[in-house]
Design a protein around this nucleic acid. Structure first.
Lengths: 223, 223
DNA sequence: ATTCGACTAGGGGATGCCCCCTAGTCGCCA
DNA sequence: TGGCGACTAGGGGGCATCCCCTAGTCGAAT
């Protein structure tokens, strides 16, 4: 796997990268994507979080690219341990989920970047380049989520549902009609509609169906 | 995208392959894995099931490699439609799940093979070669599961929802309106309503909200 | 050859959903 | 003490949902 170029390479040392994902095909894809870059060398593959941590501490790569969801240790847990015991190893988190659920935890754990797998692969290379320069990297979606969180009550803050709104959302998700909810909570149908409507606007959702999935994700109800 | 080789190619025609997965990084990995083979050409990428179906029917690749879990149509639903409308297109199912949950459905839907993403990438190439020869391909794990099932009697009880009803239920649960579903499936709004209504009657449910929870319980969609 | 189920499409109508708006009370707090 | 947010309630309108019904084609099974 040496560089085939006989002429002088423009960079002194290739960047050493460790990749960790429990899916072989994903690892292969990452490896090939990265090794098309002349100045990147994949020095190891791990298929679970514990292996990733051990390899990162032993091999001291410049960068470890970790999937969030792995056996034994999640990517976030592995990140914490790697950053604690080998602070010179940067970490990039790959998320299979199409949301920013783990963004804040990843940053708190010491990750330098957060990339969604649904994103184009150009984003991953950009992220690697940013880490190489010692900069953090977030996808535009992640940046937006972060800004909204810092600004707090910007427009659609997570979890500013009032207690009443949460009650209504839960009942909606349990397949009650507005009328039934009004009866259960001893309210008028109109008030229920207002709570539901306000909750939906805060969460950026358009109908009860999206609300159901939200409630299940949040553990408000069982599927 | 023509072959740049001026000299006589060793094989007459490269095998045309379509890949479909909702994660860009997985698509890139598959593409690079396949295109390292001289006689394989990736003729398209789709990021959801409906797009995969449309591209497969339009482009007529030799093989469509479909992820099980995709928006709009699952890989299994797309398989059924592709095999019905373009029987010369072979289908290979990729499963992210580390079990054989969808193996039997995949075979019933007309898939030629079933490969787990956790498997080594050599398995995928083997599967592609098998399809090229017109043979089915199952990973050893899948074969074992199939044998056990044949011996031990079907635990893979299908719901009594028809395939069409299942498609509609999935799309309803993904928060699509009747009109959107009609557009995705190339049907009239009335037909969609009929399928949804029939499905709800069979399952004893009264509205879309209950349908969402059903779909999540059954693993048709993620919350 | 007929029956059956799946799929398709539509009419018509009752109800529910969802949005826009106003408007009152209450308690908290700057 | 005036504002602010939560909670309450309603009017009105536009559209979606959901139900009942008929009715055609198609392929598979009897």
């Amino acid at each position: 796997m040496e560089a085939q170029r006989a002429y002088a390479p423009p960079v002194a040392e290739p960047m050493k990268v460790l990749i960790a994902d429990d899916h072989g095909i994903v690892r292969s894809g990452l490896r090939m994507l990265l090794e098309r870059q002349m100045d990147i060398e994949v020095v190891g593959e791990a298929s679970d979080g514990a292996e990733a941590r051990d390899m990162a501490i032993r091999e001291r790569p410049d960068l470890a690219i970790l999937d969030v969801k792995m056996p034994k240790l999640t990517g976030l847990q592995a990140t914490r341990e790697i950053r604690a015991q080998a602070p010179d190893v940067a970490v990039l988190i790959l998320s299979m989920y199409d949301d920013e659920r783990y963004l804040f935890e990843a940053l708190k754990a010491g990750a330098s970047g957060y990339v969604l797998k649904a994103q184009a692969d150009s984003d991953l290379l950009e992220a690697v380049r940013a880490v190489e320069r010692g900069e953090p990297f977030l996808t535009p979606e992640a940046q937006r989520a972060l800004i909204q969180d810092v600004l707090g009550e910007g427009s659609s803050r997570e979890e500013d549902l009032t207690p009443r709104e949460q009650e209504v959302v839960k009942l909606v998700a349990e397949a009650h009609t507005n009328r039934e909810i009004a009866s259960i909570l001893h309210l008028s149908e109109k008030t229920v509609e207002n709570h539901r409507s306000n909750a939906m606007r805060k969460l950026g959702m358009r109908d009860r169906v999206e609300l159901v999935r939200y409630a299940i994700r949040k553990g408000l109800i069982e599927p």
